[in-house]
């Protein structure tokens, strides 16, 4: 299934770019709804459209933007900027783990392809990419194509939300708050490969719940994720004894 070309184990092809853009298409609607919510909150917090666009372009991380906007200031000093950077770091710490997890695939590509591709990484693009990799695919175009389409979506979608402003008022009745959780759960459900994953994911969920209840904030995401990662690593079947998944 993997397209091996000219000795490069992980090529970057135009076919891959286009296929990646098409594979990410189902994500555009949920990401747009989420983006509209971010735009509406930005308007409420007094950001200008230029500032919102700059944030969407340079940060490109929905959950972190939404939470950071909750702590937005009228005027900024060094302490406030440091605080917003720390908040961003806790919510985006999972990107560090995902980036590390992409090593086996991306190390087969040259650095000048791997690092720019990582700049386009989001939760959805990462899950799509890992699914593709697990099925034997290696084309970097899949990752880059899907990432660029999502980035463009993320530039455009918040604008109507910003202009309409009050879009989020009845968010709960229309289930808008569940769009990302439901969609993301559907995406990862297909990565399940057996009992090890079941136990690891329950451990991650339980840890996330308990940490959040105890400490609030958003550290529960990365702590829960770490617990899940370690659990899955410890439950790894011995080499050769496993009949499931990839070899």
């Amino acid at each position: 299934m993997s397209s091996r070309q000219a000795g490069l184990a992980a090529p970057l092809t135009m076919t891959g770019l286009i296929l990646g853009a098409r594979m990410i298409a189902p994500v555009i609607l949920p990401v747009s709804l989420f983006g509209a919510a971010v735009g509406a909150v930005a308007a409420q917090k007094g950001l200008t459209l230029t500032e919102l666009n700059a944030m969407n372009l340079f940060v490109y991380a929905g959950a972190a933007q939404l939470v950071a906007l909750g702590f937005w200031q009228e005027s900024w000093n060094a302490a406030a900027i440091l605080n917003i950077a720390l908040i961003t770091a806790t919510i985006n710490a999972r990107l560090f783990l995902m980036s590390a997890a992409l090593r086996p695939w991306f190390q087969q590509a040259p650095s000048h392809v791997a690092y720019p591709a990582l700049l386009t990484m989001t939760d959805a693009g990462y899950v799509l990419g890992q699914r593709y990799y697990a099925e034997g695919g290696r084309d970097m175009g899949i990752f880059l194509g899907s990432g660029l389409v999502l980035w463009a979506t993320w530039m455009i979608a918040p604008i109507p939300g910003f202009l309409l402003g009050s879009l989020t008022r009845d968010a709960r009745a229309f289930g808008i708050d569940l769009v990302m959780p439901v969609f993301f759960s559907a995406m990862v459900a297909r990565l399940w490969q057996g009992r090890g994953d079941t136990i690891a994911w329950i451990a991650a969920g339980l840890t996330g719940y308990l940490i959040q209840r105890q400490f609030g904030g958003s550290v529960h995401v990365v702590i829960g994720a770490m617990v899940g990662l370690v659990t899955a690593a410890m439950l790894t079947p011995p080499v050769g004894a496993s009949g499931e998944g990839k070899a």
């Binding site: 783990l97 490969q193 994953d197 659990t231």
Partner: peptide, 9 residues
């Protein structure tokens, strides 16, 4: 490999 599900959970 198991990480995406752990993040979601």
């Amino acid at each position: 490999r198991s990480l995406p599900g752990a993040v979601a959970a």
